[in-house]
Design a protein around this nucleic acid. Sequence first.
DNA 1: GTAATTGCTAAACCTCACTTTAGGTCAAGG
DNA 2: CCTTGACCTAAAGTGAGGTTTAGCAATTAC
Lengths: 151, 151
Amino acid sequence: MAVNEGLSIGALAKRTGLAVSAIRYYEAQGLIAPWRNAGGQRRFDRADLRRLSFIMIAQQFGFTLPQIKAELDQLPGGRTPTKTDWTRISQSFRAALDARITTLTKLRDNLDGCIGCGCLSLEACALYNPVDRAGEKGPGPRYLMGDEPAA
Amino acid sequence: MAVNEGLSIGALAKRTGLAVSAIRYYEAQGLIAPWRNAGGQRRFDRADLRRLSFIMIAQQFGFTLPQIKAELDQLPGGRTPTKTDWTRISQSFRAALDARITTLTKLRDNLDGCIGCGCLSLEACALYNPVDRAGEKGPGPRYLMGDEPAA
DNA sequence: GTAATTGCTAAACCTCACTTTAGGTCAAGG
DNA sequence: CCTTGACCTAAAGTGAGGTTTAGCAATTAC
């Protein structure tokens, strides 16, 4: 129990509320990179708490793990990220979030227009058009909420 | 090609942009209930175009199929839904949507507060709290975007 | 020192929302 | 009549995001 040996996976799980299995899964997906102690057990930095926190928040916002990884990959490799580093990625994150809120609000406003007519008609309803366009992309995974597939 | 024999699944697919397989899947999930012609092929009402349209729109908003089914189940059983019926479910739908936008906006505002400090700290960050609460629900499926699991 | 925890890996399993495949049937046009 | 295209079912496959299981090793608590 020396002070500088890092956190165990169980400790991380307790502090984040994540399941141990989820943390291991994030490692497998390249979102977090613990080292190993002499016995082969994972040890984590305190900075990893922040990474996990970011992952959980971004998931609440509806981002996929590859998208989140892309954001986290912008953090510096060789050193512990500074506040400035986190501020930078929070900002890029906020832009994506703003776009999502805008889309949702626009769709809601279209829905308001439709409540009066009760139509949802394929020919006339303002709500139908964005849906139609998604359909025209052809078969394959249909993306949600106006987002493009993960980069 | 008599006038009143209903639409084939292919016709529905063309008019909605959905895949035929998706429509059959929705039937299996109880979201739509075609009848069969003498040869065993599915035949659909024109009103089913509206149901499918609603499904597609609701999915854009991030609702799951069970949630959408719950809304559609409120439509009358014995007759073709009227505009009033659709208006009623659009309104209940809008309320759910409003809640979603509110949550997202609140989270975004919290993020704004965090950009200044760059923290995302588990102890202090305003963003952490909602995440933490989700974690406290214990193991099992973690719900997204502040929604409760489908009824 | 030993028992209970906690951690390890690999592989199987799960839900959601579908698509694809395989093998066969139905309907419409020439 | 016969071919072509649309349709049928059941079952398996997909990919995201994990959890569960099995069997074993390391750590911690007493």
